[in-house]
Design a protein around this nucleic acid. Sequence first.
DNA 1: GCGAGGTTTTAAAGCGCTTTAATACCGAGT
DNA 2: ACTCGGTATTAAAGCGCTTTAAAACCTCGC
Lengths: 337, 337
Amino acid sequence: MLNPERRVRLDDVAAEVGLSTASVSLVLRGAPGPSAATRERVLAAAERLGYRPDRAASLLAAHRSRLIGVLLDVRSTFHAELVEDLHETVEQHGYDLVLSTITRSRGEQRAIETLLDSRCEALVLLGPEAPAKRLVALDRQVPVVTVSRRVGAAEVDVVRVADDVGVGQAVEHLTGLGHRDIAYLDGGPGLIAAERCRGYQGAMRGAGLAERSRVLPGGPDEEAGMQVARALLDTGEPLPTAVVAFNDRSAVGLLDVFVRSGVDVPGQVSVVGYDDDLVARLAHVALTTVGQDTRKLTEHAIALLVERLDGTRTEHREVVLPPYLVIRGTTGPPRTT
Amino acid sequence: MLNPERRVRLDDVAAEVGLSTASVSLVLRGAPGPSAATRERVLAAAERLGYRPDRAASLLAAHRSRLIGVLLDVRSTFHAELVEDLHETVEQHGYDLVLSTITRSRGEQRAIETLLDSRCEALVLLGPEAPAKRLVALDRQVPVVTVSRRVGAAEVDVVRVADDVGVGQAVEHLTGLGHRDIAYLDGGPGLIAAERCRGYQGAMRGAGLAERSRVLPGGPDEEAGMQVARALLDTGEPLPTAVVAFNDRSAVGLLDVFVRSGVDVPGQVSVVGYDDDLVARLAHVALTTVGQDTRKLTEHAIALLVERLDGTRTEHREVVLPPYLVIRGTTGPPRTT
DNA sequence: GCGAGGTTTTAAAGCGCTTTAATACCGAGT
DNA sequence: ACTCGGTATTAAAGCGCTTTAAAACCTCGC
């Protein structure tokens, strides 16, 4: 139908310089053999002809694909950041990325199969939900590293951030400002929520504030934050001087109700979120929160995979990184009244 | 069921049922030829052995890849929604998707090349920024459809939403509620902003409110909305009874300043955004806004590509869809004072 | 029992590239 | 002149699948 100009192939380049396809192939991949002079001629010809290797053919012929598959949820802004960093990181190792997202109608399993079908040599799973068993099975086919997900048994490589430490940092920041009545807005059920809550309790204990600990049952979204804020206001009792929220979304819900009710933040109450979501960074929100170093996260993930691909390591590892506090405008010294 | 050993190939399945690979291949792709009995045997064997065709090999051998490439910005929530819908849509046409995102260090050109290298038969470009010339050149290599982007010359297929109409709907909604002092918070320079502004002015004129038109110079983000809100409050003059904003982000900035200043929304001022961003849907924002039907957008995009792939159509088309109003909590009757 | 005419099946030629074993080449050394 | 040890180049065998022309196998009617 269309496509008048045939795609340029290896033979075309070879013919152009009067060499065999073998030589051209070697040059193009920087393999040892061809002389410097040849290299130059070939490279020039390839450039001139606008040659682009055919992925499918390379994949088939070479036994390596130099492709790393990434499972993500395209709706997640956090995953988006990770993907950005992954792109840069894998490039440095000479790999390329293949993206596969879950959607309403496209389960994790399905998305992973796509990656496998693309001949990925290894997989990065961002916040996978598959049972550990399945991950382990998958890991037998191809090296797998999960990011931001605890896998019960240490039979799969994991890179994650120490959430309890992050919440601890938030609490310390507040105690450092002089706060003593620091409440925690819980995130509901789930491993992550549990760990963050544990971090809160540990930090309160560490600050000698154990008996002032106050965990407010909540949830992971704005709605939950709003409800808790309303409940807090309705009691008529004095508000805590600071609230550490499970995540930025619930913190924003809380903030919103406070602001609408005329509660000054941070004048009357300080609020800390968690995740350093895009929303936390908005000028009008300026939420103090806890962030994760996505760059380090991805670098470790790729490093783990590369080690396994190179056969340097066979046992499994878990890398736990420390998060860091991002101080913005929602925290300040406690009210004096 | 799964094999710890070598990957199962077509020969393995063929051997299992005692047929040639040709027959198996035909069956597996539903091609005509094999008898019903054979079909069944082959399918069963393939299932039993856990056969998965090798993409690379298929791509190479078949001249079609049945792959459609998508260029997106993984950070955009709007693109995320489109990708979700695209997945479902292409599936119905028997195609599969390949995703390629731009990042800070990975330009559009680069991302597109990746898609081409993967042998995509056609491309969906979400909000591309490349100059029209380049898009046209690309379109000569492979059918291209751009989504949400006006391409000057109609030399590339385009699917987009009529932004002017959307803003018009917003204005009509407000006039319907009785508003007459409706201001427009502009989005700064750019084609999109211009079109939306035109929509506002046209609608005001249509409602006989031309001389009440009031375009407030602004920008596309929260910051801009905040500034405009402050400026509006500072003048001391009465506020307009309603503001239509360039997009949800600027609307949120505006809203935020209003709320913090004790201005009741929608009691004193109604606010309408544009885009139906995730942020507009948050319970505590509940922004009345204008949305686009991502489903229709993707369906048209894919339909256009399929037509061209099938050779049904050779000239170019532009599909313009109407947006729709989403009425939430930030609009109401005008204040009576 | 035989061939026409239809249905199933298969042999074999690639797809565009990688890779390895083998060949060609080129002084240096004897 | 002639081998030797490199180095530079290439022929050729795939990679796992698709596809088409041809072969094999069927009825069935006469």
